[in-house]
């Protein structure tokens, strides 16, 4: 058969596409359960981290996560847990960042007096700038921070704040837009948790 003819070209293109796509589907199907499990573990670890439980072992993550209660409120899933004798609520969130969505988990005390912790699950911010929201120092700012006027604010540029009572967190230098996004997300998520929990209390 003439290899430059149109029928051969069409047949060849069809067959080779079919073959490679078939192989890809096998690869995808074969690893799908593993990918799903990784995703679930990452999610459970984030929820636990936000509540303040830091675990890395897979077994430990599963065990501790199974102790966390899951509630459905206003179409949202809330996680409820007892930490040091206090009830803590955690909620997964997703909001707009600079380059793409930022998703994570925010945990607050049930009386909404203080935040308990923040964990970032996924983000596409500029590495080294906005991407630093995943660093411990940034997340630790939400550890036991007082919620003032029902929100958490990002502090003004140039002034650092280490006071846990003023309801303010530091922005990331060189990442104004990402910091603003985080401010918006935190504000909105605290509201949402308040609405969801407010009905219950």
């Amino acid at each position: 058969m003439n290899k430059q003819s149109i029928p051969y070209t069409m047949l060849f293109t069809f067959l080779i596409s079919f073959l490679f796509v078939l192989l890809l589907s096998f690869a995808h199907q074969g690893t799908a359960p593993l990918v799903q499990r990784n995703r679930e573990i990452a999610r459970q670890r984030s929820v636990l981290a936000a509540i303040g439980i830091s675990v890395t072992e897979e077994e430990e993550i599963r065990r501790r996560f199974s102790e966390v209660e899951q509630l459905e409120r206003e179409g949202m899933t809330l996680f409820r847990s007892e930490v040091e004798g206090r009830t803590v609520y955690a909620k997964e969130f997703s909001g707009a960042g600079l380059w793409g969505p930022i998703s994570g988990v925010l945990a607050v005390r049930s009386d909404l007096e203080r935040t308990v912790g923040l964990e970032i699950v996924d983000q596409n911010e500029t590495p080294g700038l906005g991407g630093r929201i995943t660093e411990q120092w940034f997340k630790d700012q939400l550890r036991d921070l007082r919620i003032v006027d029902g929100t958490v604010r990002v502090g003004p540029p140039g002034e650092g704040t280490t006071d846990k009572e003023d309801g303010m967190i530091d922005a990331v230098t060189g990442a104004t837009r990402t910091s603003e996004s985080m401010g918006t997300i935190l504000h909105r998520e605290i509201r949402r948790i308040a609405e969801a929990v407010g009905e219950e209390i």
């Binding site: 051969y8 060849f12 080779i16 490679f20 690869a27 690893t31 593993l34 990918v35 990784n38």
Partner: peptide, 29 residues
């Protein structure tokens, strides 16, 4: 066939790249 040479090369390259992506996602999340 010479006419579709480059598009076939692209297909092959894309195939291996997706394999790498799938492996990373499964084993090095």
């Amino acid at each position: 066939p010479r006419k579709v040479r480059m598009i076939v090369q692209t297909l092959i390259i894309a195939f291996y790249v997706i394999i790498v992506d799938v492996l990373l996602r499964a084993y090095l999340p």
